[in-house]
Protein backbone atom coordinates (compact mmCIF):
# COMPACT_ATOMS: atom_id res chain seq x y z
CA UNK A 1 0.00 0.00 0.00
CA UNK A 2 1.53 3.35 -0.96
CA UNK A 3 1.96 5.98 1.70
CA UNK A 4 0.60 9.42 1.02
CA UNK A 5 2.52 12.18 2.66
CA UNK A 6 1.06 15.63 2.63
CA UNK A 7 0.93 18.82 4.61
CA UNK A 8 -2.64 18.65 5.76
CA UNK A 9 -3.96 21.80 7.38
CA UNK A 10 -0.44 22.80 8.25
CA UNK A 11 0.69 19.47 9.64
CA UNK A 12 2.64 16.75 7.99
CA UNK A 13 0.63 13.55 7.80
CA UNK A 14 1.38 10.09 6.52
CA UNK A 15 -1.44 7.82 5.57
CA UNK A 16 -1.55 4.48 3.81
CA UNK A 17 -3.83 4.59 0.81
CA UNK A 18 -4.78 2.40 -2.07
CA UNK A 19 -3.64 3.55 -5.47
CA UNK A 20 -7.22 4.01 -6.58
CA UNK A 21 -8.37 6.03 -3.56
CA UNK A 22 -9.71 9.49 -4.12
CA UNK A 23 -8.70 12.35 -1.89
CA UNK A 24 -12.22 12.85 -0.55
CA UNK A 25 -12.40 9.29 0.71
CA UNK A 26 -8.99 9.45 2.31
CA UNK A 27 -9.87 12.68 4.09
CA UNK A 28 -13.23 11.43 5.28
CA UNK A 29 -12.73 7.76 5.92
CA UNK A 30 -9.05 7.46 6.78
CA UNK A 31 -8.43 10.81 8.45
CA UNK A 32 -11.86 11.48 9.89
CA UNK A 33 -12.10 14.94 8.37
CA UNK A 34 -15.83 14.87 7.79
CA UNK A 35 -16.09 18.56 6.93
CA UNK A 36 -15.38 17.68 3.32
CA UNK A 37 -18.74 16.57 1.94
CA UNK A 38 -19.69 14.27 -0.90
CA UNK A 39 -22.82 15.04 -2.83
CA UNK A 40 -22.51 14.24 -6.53
CA UNK A 41 -19.25 12.32 -6.74
CA UNK A 42 -18.60 13.62 -10.24
CA UNK A 43 -17.19 17.13 -9.97
CA UNK A 44 -20.60 18.71 -10.47
CA UNK A 45 -21.26 20.36 -7.12
CA UNK A 46 -18.15 21.43 -5.26
CA UNK A 47 -19.30 20.07 -1.88
CA UNK A 48 -16.01 18.21 -1.68
CA UNK A 49 -13.80 21.16 -2.58
CA UNK A 50 -10.45 21.44 -0.79
CA UNK A 51 -7.36 23.50 -1.47
CA UNK A 52 -4.31 21.83 -2.96
CA UNK A 53 -1.36 24.23 -2.94
CA UNK A 54 -3.89 27.02 -2.59
CA UNK A 55 -6.10 26.05 -5.50
CA UNK A 56 -9.61 24.69 -5.12
CA UNK A 57 -10.13 21.20 -6.47
CA UNK A 58 -13.02 18.77 -6.21
CA UNK A 59 -11.60 16.06 -3.98
CA UNK A 60 -14.16 13.48 -5.13
CA UNK A 61 -12.46 13.50 -8.54
CA UNK A 62 -8.93 13.92 -7.32
CA UNK A 63 -6.74 10.85 -7.03
CA UNK A 64 -5.39 10.87 -3.49
CA UNK A 65 -1.84 10.26 -4.60
CA UNK A 66 -1.88 13.47 -6.60
CA UNK A 67 -1.65 15.18 -3.23
CA UNK A 68 1.70 13.50 -2.58
CA UNK A 69 3.98 16.11 -1.04
CA UNK A 70 1.42 18.88 -1.48
CA UNK A 71 -0.23 21.27 0.91
CA UNK A 72 -3.85 20.33 1.40
CA UNK A 73 -6.30 22.55 3.24
CA UNK A 74 -9.75 21.37 4.22
CA UNK A 75 -12.48 23.31 5.96
CA UNK A 76 -11.06 22.11 9.26
CA UNK A 77 -7.82 23.90 8.46
CA UNK A 78 -9.36 27.34 8.20
CA UNK A 79 -9.16 29.77 11.07
CA UNK A 80 -6.67 29.55 13.88
CA UNK A 81 -7.00 27.79 17.18
CA UNK A 82 -10.55 28.51 18.14
CA UNK A 83 -10.92 31.61 16.00
CA UNK A 84 -12.89 31.41 12.83
CA UNK A 85 -11.51 32.50 9.51
CA UNK A 86 -13.06 35.85 8.54
CA UNK A 87 -14.85 34.10 5.70
CA UNK A 88 -16.45 31.66 8.11
CA UNK A 89 -17.46 34.51 10.40
CA UNK A 90 -19.02 36.40 7.50
CA UNK A 91 -21.00 33.31 6.52
CA UNK A 92 -22.46 33.24 10.03
CA UNK A 93 -23.12 36.97 10.10
CA UNK A 94 -24.97 36.88 6.78
CA UNK A 95 -27.08 33.82 7.70
CA UNK A 96 -25.53 32.10 4.70
CA UNK A 97 -25.75 28.46 5.80
CA UNK A 98 -29.10 26.81 5.65
CA UNK A 99 -28.72 23.05 5.69
CA UNK A 100 -24.99 23.64 5.55
CA UNK A 101 -24.10 20.70 3.37
CA UNK A 102 -22.66 22.85 0.59
CA UNK A 103 -21.10 25.32 2.99
CA UNK A 104 -17.63 23.83 3.56
CA UNK A 105 -17.14 23.72 -0.20
CA UNK A 106 -18.46 27.25 -0.59
CA UNK A 107 -16.12 28.54 2.09
CA UNK A 108 -13.17 26.78 0.43
CA UNK A 109 -14.05 28.28 -2.95
CA UNK A 110 -14.39 31.69 -1.35
CA UNK A 111 -11.02 31.25 0.32
CA UNK A 112 -9.35 30.35 -2.97
CA UNK A 113 -10.97 33.34 -4.60
CA UNK A 114 -10.07 35.91 -1.96
CA UNK A 115 -6.51 34.67 -1.61
CA UNK A 116 -5.99 35.29 -5.29
CA UNK A 117 -8.23 38.30 -5.72
CA UNK A 118 -8.82 40.21 -2.49
CA UNK A 119 -11.18 42.73 -4.10
CA UNK A 120 -13.48 40.72 -6.30
CA UNK A 121 -16.39 42.27 -8.13
CA UNK A 122 -19.81 40.74 -7.70
CA UNK A 123 -19.32 39.01 -11.06
CA UNK A 124 -15.98 37.59 -9.96
CA UNK A 125 -17.55 36.26 -6.79
CA UNK A 126 -20.23 34.55 -8.84
CA UNK A 127 -17.58 33.02 -11.07
CA UNK A 128 -15.64 31.97 -8.00
CA UNK A 129 -18.53 29.89 -6.69
CA UNK A 130 -19.94 28.82 -10.04
CA UNK A 131 -18.54 25.34 -9.46
CA UNK A 132 -20.50 24.97 -6.21
CA UNK A 133 -24.15 24.03 -6.11
CA UNK A 134 -26.49 24.94 -3.27
CA UNK A 135 -30.08 23.79 -3.13
CA UNK A 136 -31.18 25.81 -0.12
CA UNK A 137 -30.20 29.44 -0.36
CA UNK A 138 -30.44 30.80 -3.87
CA UNK A 139 -26.81 31.84 -3.24
CA UNK A 140 -27.60 35.45 -2.28
CA UNK A 141 -26.51 35.37 1.32
CA UNK A 142 -23.44 33.38 0.32
CA UNK A 143 -22.46 36.13 -2.12
CA UNK A 144 -23.13 38.77 0.54
CA UNK A 145 -21.00 36.84 3.00
CA UNK A 146 -18.07 36.76 0.59
CA UNK A 147 -18.46 40.48 -0.06
CA UNK A 148 -18.47 41.11 3.67
CA UNK A 149 -15.42 38.93 4.20
CA UNK A 150 -13.56 40.80 1.44
CA UNK A 151 -14.44 44.11 3.08
CA UNK A 152 -13.31 43.00 6.50
CA UNK A 153 -10.10 41.52 5.13
CA UNK A 154 -9.36 44.75 3.29
CA UNK A 155 -9.73 46.65 6.56
CA UNK A 156 -7.30 44.28 8.22
CA UNK A 157 -4.93 44.50 5.30
CA UNK A 158 -5.38 41.52 3.08
CA UNK A 159 -6.19 37.85 3.52
CA UNK A 160 -4.18 35.07 5.18
Amino acid sequence: MPTLKMILNGQEVFVDVEAGDLLADVLRDKLGLIGTKISCGEGECGACAVLVDGRAVDSCLYPALKAQGREVTTIEGLGQDNRLDPIQQAFIDKTAPQCGYCIPGMVISAKALLDENPHPTRQEIEEGISGNLCRCTGYYQIIEAIELAAERLAEKGGPK
Binding site: L33, I34, G35, K37, I38, E76, L78, T95, P97, G100
Partner: peptide, 21 residues
Protein backbone atom coordinates in the same frame (compact mmCIF):
# COMPACT_ATOMS: atom_id res chain seq x y z
CA UNK B 1 -34.08 39.93 15.22
CA UNK B 2 -31.76 38.25 12.76
CA UNK B 3 -29.82 36.42 15.43
CA UNK B 4 -27.16 34.02 14.16
CA UNK B 5 -28.50 30.60 13.40
CA UNK B 6 -28.12 28.19 16.25
CA UNK B 7 -26.07 25.77 14.16
CA UNK B 8 -24.22 28.19 11.90
CA UNK B 9 -20.88 28.12 13.71
CA UNK B 10 -20.51 24.37 13.55
CA UNK B 11 -21.69 24.33 9.95
CA UNK B 12 -19.14 26.84 8.69
CA UNK B 13 -16.44 24.87 10.47
CA UNK B 14 -17.50 21.62 8.88
CA UNK B 15 -18.01 20.11 12.32
CA UNK B 16 -21.72 19.51 12.13
CA UNK B 17 -22.37 15.84 11.61
CA UNK B 18 -24.69 14.72 8.84
CA UNK B 19 -25.85 11.11 8.60
CA UNK B 20 -22.93 10.04 6.39
CA UNK B 21 -20.53 11.40 8.97
Amino acid sequence: QSVPKIDAATKVRGQRKFPQD
